[in-house]
Design a protein around this nucleic acid. Structure first.
Length: 852
RNA sequence: GCCCGGGUGGCGGAAUGGCAGACGCAACGGACUUAAAAUCCGUUUCCCGUAGGGAGUGGGGGUUCGAGUCCCCCCCCGGGCACCA
């Protein structure tokens, strides 16, 4: 055995071995417990892997390797989310076909991922841009369409001129594109929409059964945004028109002193009086010209105009004015509200500005008002808005409803019952969730299997003609009309029905990047099946995904979309589970070391000089402060895994990523930290290389160290607490490394414990112990409780909770024994002299506390 | 504003309500070496000191024999949502 730990040689050797022997190929449907462990597959960008990627991948890899040794059949695949904008933009700039860029990037990524020694079953690799894959993405779209879940709508969309495409709401941040930070404007366009709203309730309900971080579930709940209330019809005075409003506070109907229609509401035109028409038109034009960003960013000041008409409040017959204001959104509820300024902050603000009466109808609950620092008298006079609990006042009317004296919840129920009885309204539920804008004006995405026929009908491409492959293009520029570059591919575009001769034009939109990632976890189960998306038997064997690890940035979108598709596939019998991902874990972001000067200005890392006094600016020698910040090209603080692997090896890289801290925490990268785990591996290597592997029996103390290490590493690996598992292995090496020999029993167990974490060195050490073949399927060691026991324990005797004396006592001492041993101790007795012992608490194995 | 996370040495972080700071980094001292690298040993929360003592887990209160851990209030940092009636 080499004296030196030569990681480069070892890692090359074992990666070659695993590949040649297909060590990690997972058989389907075998008689073993299964576990499906999935990483969020990456978008293979041109810049390659950064240290954030391997964090989650290492975590899942450790877990998989551990599970294999525990006797599980493990599904652990990897693939590529390879459609997307960057490759297309590169094509626009250079003329390189996106497929070529994608192929090259995938190669780079694959090489980098392989160099980390992950135990993927590469025979299951899939890529979303592969026609054999997107055939089924297109097939799923057809299923959605057949079930009425895909429809075309003329909708105001987020048009980004710079990118030449439409973006989903989620891809627009503060009125600019998420990618590239370009301005975005609203523009009506014919688009494919997916009716995710039809699944809102199920998407909400089924969250409860998932083992996901509570925060992520909460974010999805908020995104779905269910609210319960009522729809109420208000008659427009002197007209047959009715305005339907949605409210969560039907109890406050008596406080409604005006109504508001959204500027886009279809009744605005017909009810506006001639005298008000001019100002209403002006206001509508003003509202239309504003982007979503301006509308939301300027939300400090409410705007609106009176339309001249009034409506009748159904509970008391009173006339109330109808206003037009953009604080009411056309896209939520009915696009119209009843305004209750006394008990709604937004209405209150609006009423104050326009001098509309505020009518208090709830007497605030006393303790709640006190707690919030609200003066009840102010509320009653309409000077302050109250949105909390209380009792209804001024709430009976000519129409027969009387809810005076009731609490909010009961008043709601009573009002709804009355409205339903009078046929004036009904209980209603609303969701914030909107239908999913599913079109993109791009080349590099899945083409829709759709033909628009000249008679106006929409025809779907038959299954046997799938996949529908995008045409070869020379020019990848957007068409400029808002259509994708596909609009330039005349031959591909034009279609003639072979039977009838009717002409048609293919859909020029493509699907968004989310499409391919919505179902890839299913394809891994049966990646080469050309008859079905997934074989039902294999699907039943492997699903659901038992552990899904990825970044929190996908908390809502990817995970919500994938759940939606999964439920549709469940409904048509393709999958057997209601939910795709039983357990979800988010790995925390890894930050880079960054520097700022005293004014707080950021200094790129290549302009920093480290001195014994701390970091200084390389040019000005100004003192700098070190702090962790998101890795970015501009800060020059990006750590490249290749460099780390080259210098310390993949095993050190893996170990360090896990040793930094809890998987889910945000952690700063530290190169000296890598050196620490590297030293540990070298020490472990020397423990084998420089010592005799002896056949002798272990001492009691050694047994205790060994078995407590087995216990801790097993438990912590199971619960993904990898940092503390590694600490325990370090303790093991610190103890056994100091001995003249290494007993074989301890050596073998240790190598097995290390194997999931640092697999290359573990394979090499395993071989050095005389074993042939891989350690990957060796049985995981089991600890024995009897070796953890000790004869003597050191306990602490406290008086009044203050430490007084440490003493060694038999570990098996009962509480009573402990008490008497403590009281009999001369030092304790001395400390207690003249005091009356009132109570003694004894915690076995820990301490005795004497209360005087 | 609302909803989630989170505040522990110089740093990353450990701690079933039971001796706070495991493990690692950095720093300092020492050994080995002609020297360096590598390695090994020791010290390292802060304050006062000779033994020894005092303070200490963002701040303030509380429960408890005992609180980093449980409860209430506040402050700060990170993330998400944001006129959703």
């Amino acid at each position: 055995m080499e004296r030196q730990y030569n990681f480069a040689v070892i890692e090359r050797k074992w990666q070659g071995y695993w590949e040649a022997n297909k060590t990690f190929k997972s058989p389907d449907c075998v008689d073993k417990p299964k576990v499906y462990v999935l990483d969020m597959f990456p978008y293979p960008s041109g810049s390659g892997l950064h240290v954030g990627h391997p964090e989650g991948y290492t975590a899942t890899d450790i877990y998989c390797r551990y599970k294999r040794m525990k006797g599980f059949n493990v599904l652990h695949p990897m693939g590529w989310d390879a459609f997307g904008l960057p490759a297309e933009q590169y094509a626009v700039d250079t003329g390189t076909h996106p497929a070529q860029t994608t192929r090259k990037n995938i190669e780079t990524f694959k090489g980098q991922i392989k160099s980390l020694g992950f135990s993927y079953d590469w025979d299951r690799e899939v890529g979303t841009t592969d026609p054999a894959y997107f055939k089924w993405t297109q097939w799923i779209f057809k299923q959605l369409h057949d079930r009425g879940l895909a429809y075309i709508d003329e909708v105001p969309v987020n048009w980004c001129p710079a990118l030449g495409t439409v973006l989903a709401n989620e891809e627009v941040i503060d009125g600019r594109s998420e990618r590239g930070n370009h301005p975005v404007e609203r523009r009506p366009m014919r688009q494919w929409m997916l009716k995710i709203t039809a699944y809102a309730e199920r998407l909400l309900e089924d969250l409860d059964g998932l083992e996901w971080p509570e925060g992520i579930k909460e974010m999805q709940r908020n995104w779905i945004g269910k609210s319960v209330g009522a729809e109420v019809d208000f008659r427009v005075s002197g007209s047959e028109e009715k305005i339907r409003v949605y409210t969560t506070r039907p109890d406050t109907l008596f406080g409604a002193t005006y109504m508001v229609l959204s500027p886009e509401h279809k009744l605005v035109d017909s009810i506006t009086t001639p005298g008000c028409r001019e100002s209403v038109e002006a206001y509508r034009r003003h509202a239309a010209s504003m982007s979503d960003m301006e509308r939301t960013e300027l939300n400090t000041e409410k705007t609106g105009v009176f339309c001249g008409a009034t409506a009748v409040n159904p509970v008391n017959g009173q006339d109330i004015p109808i206003w037009i204001a953009d604080y009411v959104l056309i896209s939520y509820g009915t696009g119209a509200i009843m305004a209750v300024p006394s008990h709604d902050e937004r209405d209150f603000e609006f009423a104050k500005k326009f001098g509309i009466p505020v009518r208090c109808i709830i007497e605030p609950e006393e303790t709640e008002a006190e707690k919030g620092g609200v003066d009840t008298a102010d509320v009653l006079e309409g000077k302050v808005c109250w949105t909390g609990n209380g009792r209804m006042i001024n709430s009976s009317g000519s129409q027969g409803l009387d809810i005076n004296g009731l609490e909010v919840a009961e008043a709601k129920a009573r009002t709804i019952a009355w409205l339903e009885n009078q046929k004036l309204g009904k209980a209603a539920v609303n969701y914030k969730l909107r239908d999913w804008l599913f079109s993109r004006q791009r080349y590099w995405g899945e083409p829709f299997p759709v033909i628009h026929m000249e008679d106006g009908s929409v025809r779907l491409v038959p299954d046997e003609e799938l996949p529908l492959i995008p045409p070869e293009l020379e020019n990848f520029h957007p068409s400029g009309t808002g259509e994708s570059p596909l609009a330039n591919a005349r031959e591909w575009l034009e279609y003639t029905d072979p039977k009838t001769g009717m002409k048609g034009r293919r859909e020029t939109n493509t699907m968004p990047q989310w499409a391919g990632s919505c179902w890839y976890y299913l394809r891994f189960i049966d990646p080469c099946n050309d008859k079905a998306l997934v074989d039902p038997e294999k699907e039943r064997y492997w699903m659901p995904v038992d552990l899904y690890v990825g970044g929190a940035e996908h908390a809502v979108l990817h995970l919500l979309y994938a759940r939606f598709w999964h439920k549709v596939l469940y409904d048509i019998g393709v999958v057997s589970t209601k939910e795709p991902f039983s357990r979800l874990v988010n790995q925390g972001m890894i930050l880079g070391l960054s520097y700022k000067d005293t004014r707080g200005a950021l200094v790129p890392s290549d302009q920093v000089r480290i001195t014994p006094e701390g970091p200084v600016h390389a040019e000005t020698s100004e003192r700098l402060e070190e702090f962790p910040a998101k890795m970015s090209k501009s800060l020059k603080n990006v750590v490249n895994p290749d460099d780390v692997i080259k210098e310390y090896g993949a095993d050190s890289m893996r170990l360090y990523e896990m040793f930094m801290g809890p998987l889910e925490a945000v952690k700063p990268w530290s190169t000296s930290g890598v050196e620490g785990v590297y030293r540990f591996l070298k020490k472990a290597w020397r423990m084998f290389a420089e010592k005799d592997i002896s056949a002798r029996a272990l001492t009691r103390e050694e047994l205790r160290t060994l078995h407590s290490t087995i216990k801790k590493v097993s438990e912590d690996t199971e619960s993904l607490d990898f940092n503390t598992a590694i600490s325990q292995m370090m303790i093991f090496v610190n103890e056994f490394g100091g001995k003249p020999d290494l007993p074989l029993e301890a050596a073998e167990a240790f190598v097995k414990l290390l194997a999931p974490y640092a697999p290359h060195i573990a394979e090499e050490l395993w071989e050095s112990l005389g074993h042939s073949g891989s350690i990957a399927y060796e049985q995981w060691p089991q600890h024995d409780e009897q070796f953890l026991a000790v004869d003597q324990v050191e306990i602490l005797v406290q008086i009044q909770g203050k430490p007084c004396k440490k003493m060694n006592i038999p570990a098996a001492s009962s509480q009573d024994d402990m008490k008497s041993l403590a009281l009999d101790d001369p030092d304790v007795a001395k400390a207690l002299a003249g005091k009356e012992v009132r109570k003694i608490i004894a915690v076995p194995g820990r301490l005795v506390n004497i209360v005087v």
